[in-house]
Design a protein around this nucleic acid. Structure first.
Length: 357
DNA sequence: GTAATTTGACCAGG
DNA sequence: CCTGGTCAAATTAC
């Protein structure tokens, strides 16, 4: 790695910087009545994408304490990551030990970190197609759940076998609000497959049928975490921000890491000079933005619910409390933050090419 | 042809 | 025993 910064560190930093810059632009937008709502909306999207990406990367990096810990993390008080950042060594070791011992999936599953996401799909706009969260998932089952109107779908990382990546997710459509999906993620991706090879994402319709794995919202929520930390730079408020779909998964450049998909047109790096850090990524334009406007507040140490999305973290033991937040203006997002330090996966491909340059 | 999805069977935990 | 989660053969998609 050059300059002591790994590629991912640089990426995170640049994403955060970009987010800030965009937010600033947005602020200007609001004082500039001549700018169109579309522009504003697009800026919002991009901001979110940046934060998403940064969060994702942070997640991959795992809890702090490792050599790969990014400096940024420390500067993110209140962020989930930093909260988990200091795992009790006991549990940490225990977790590692467990993972090593466990070959069987169920045990393994038990110790995997778990977090839930609630994603709203905007049926009106023909779905925000946030297709995937950028990962490459493979459906391996579907179950009717007692008391639930809709079946639950089970997905695992496409690279489970080839790269021993044990990340999985479950998608459950909400009973009362068919537009709402609860996505539970389990385990961190340890794969290092650059999926830009993966063909274009499926069509929106297809996604719809597939229960809309709009998990990218997940990252959007995560974005909020960081978002809140940059509160001073962010104070945006659009008119009513209903549950809107920030949609647009971001993708990574050809050097994409993990099992992220590099979806063609959703790359969202801006024209900001962050590229100097990143080494110059391509900058395809953002795709269509949702029409509705947003309202978005970043209050100190408080993550807000954004676009009606909701996210909770929990370790394998604790219950996932499902808070209902398809809501609108509640600036407060309940985050049950108790991620398990154990989530460091021994298999994490630190040595993966491209992970650390 | 390969890869992904579907779907009933199987299994473990409570 | 019931339920949720996973497996794997059959099927479908590419």
């Amino acid at each position: 790695m050059e300059n002591g910064w790994s590629w991912e560190q640089k990426t995170v930093i640049s994403e955060l910087i970009q987010g800030m810059e965009l937010a600033k632009q947005l602020r200007v937008q609001f004082s500039d009545t001549s700018s169109s709502p579309e522009t504003t909306d697009m800026l919002l999207q991009r901001i979110l994408n940046s934060y998403e990406k940064a969060l994702l990367i942070l997640r991959w990096s795992g809890p702090v304490g490792q050599s790969h810990t990014m400096g940024v993390t420390g500067g993110v008080p209140g962020s989930p990551i930093s909260v988990n950042g200091s795992p009790g060594s006991d549990e940490f070791e225990k977790g590692l030990k467990d993972q090593q011992e466990l070959n069987d999936a169920s045990k393994k599953r038990k110790i995997l970190p778990r977090w839930t996401d609630q994603v709203r799909v905007n049926s009106g706009t023909g779905l925000e197609g946030p297709h995937d969260d950028g990962y490459s998932w493979r459906k391996y089952g579907q179950k009717d759940i007692l008391g639930a109107k809709y079946p639950r779908s089970y997905y695992r990382c496409t690279f489970r076998i080839t790269q021993n990546c044990w990340a999985t997710k479950q998608v459950q459509r909400s009973d009362e609000d068919p537009n709402l999906f609860e996505i539970t993620y389990r385990g961190r991706h340890t794969c290092s497959h650059a999926t830009n090879l993966v063909p274009a994402p499926s069509s929106p319709e297809k996604q719809e049928q597939k229960h809309n794995n709009n998990n990218n919202d997940n990252q959007q929520k995560q974005s909020l975490d960081i978002l809140s930390t940059i509160r001073n730079n962010l104070r945006v408020a659009t008119e009513n921000l209903d549950n809107r779909e920030m949609a647009h998964p971001f993708s990574f450049p050809s050097t994409s890491f993990g099992c992220m998909k590099s979806e063609n047109s959703h790359f969202s790096l801006s024209e900001l000079d962050n590229s100097t850090l990143l080494g110059g990524f391509p900058q395809p334009f953002l795709s269509q933005a949702s029409p509705e406007s947003n309202y978005f507040t970043a209050s100190p140490f408080q993550v807000s619910n954004f676009g009606g999305v909701h996210m909770q973290f929990s370790n394998s033991e604790s219950e996932i409390i499902s808070a209902h937040t398809s809501t609108t203006n509640s600036p407060i997002l309940d985050i049950d933050f108790s991620l398990d330090p154990v989530e460091i996966d021994p298999n994490f491909p630190f040595d993966t090419p491209g992970f650390f340059s």
